[in-house]
Simulated scan of single mutants.
Amino acid sequence: MTRTNRLLAGALLTGLALLTPAGAALADDPSASPSPGASGDGSGPTEAGTTFRTATALQPGQRATAEASTGDYLYWVFPADAGERATVDATITLPQNAARHGTSTWQVDVYDGLRRRQACMYGRQTGKAVADARTVELKCVLRTVRAWSEPWADDPLPGSYYVRLTVVDLPSADLGLPVRTEVEVTSSDRGGSADVDGTLSKPLVPGVSSVAQTTDGSADDGDGDGDGDGSTRTVALGGEPEDGWASGWWTDRWLWTVGGGILGALAGVFGYSLTRGRGRPSHVPPHA
């Protein structure tokens, strides 16, 4: 093998090595850690909304707690961006069994910014608690959020996602009993394997909160005249990811695109060098 061919072969091997991390990044790792923007101590809000409109904002990585009565509908809202897969974990701590009269059934549901109910890929979305049970643990793993989808499709899209927790079946005598709830949302980035062509012009973040805030941090009285010392601003429901919507332009597909182009060019040069060696020797003059 000539020196040129050896160099080309080495370049091909280098290109393959560059593609190896990209292939590993595409693996569907079920034990992916929460997003880097998650709160380190996991502290979160200590109350829950009772409607979609009053849902309490929650960031991925935070743990929200709330004291409620059995039969209440509890709502939280969190942001999810393209390429992310969110997991919702809910724990309900029930009162002493002496105060309860039978089995209760609890359920956690997740809705997108258009209030379409999103199916769980896996997890225990509904759970029953017998009369002597102390806690109920629920889990919902959502599908990966897509950057774009057909209008008729029910795919999850970037924007706000609502978590609704409630009891769906219980003895009527148990209505109103106090319960304690804990909800935690974690998010993992699925990498370039979740990329699609096209993006939404805006994330699905419906409405604004009913309470405006002044620039000095105090709450306005809601009449819209900005009585506080600072000017008022509206707060979008669910907020947005800490690094902004679709902030990351870098994906694993860039590695595949650049690496594939390099390998294609090297393969062309290598093939040309092989075919050129079989041609007419340069020192032999052509026939007249």
Rank of each mutant, 00 (worst) to 15 (best):
R180V: 09
G224W: 01
G127F: 01
R124E: 12
R115A: 06
L12V: 14
V110T: 12
C140P: 00
E67S: 12
P60Y: 12
S187M: 14
T166G: 11
A25R: 15
E182K: 13
G217A: 09
M121K: 14
Q59M: 07
L237P: 02
A64M: 01
D112I: 08
T144Q: 11
D41Y: 07
V168P: 00
L8E: 06
A173V: 05
P79Y: 08
A147H: 01
T14C: 11
Q59Y: 04
G230E: 08
R6V: 10
D227R: 12
P171Y: 00
S188W: 05
L165V: 06
R116H: 14
G71C: 00
R278P: 01
A173F: 09
G42W: 14
L138N: 02
P206R: 11
V196S: 07
G268Q: 03
S201M: 09
D252C: 03
G259I: 14
T14F: 14
P286T: 10
L94P: 02
R190E: 15
W148G: 04
D243S: 09
A236R: 11
T65R: 12
S43T: 14
E84M: 15
T87Y: 10
H283F: 07
L138M: 07
G15L: 00
L165N: 10
T70A: 01
V235Y: 02
D169I: 00
Y162H: 07
L200H: 04
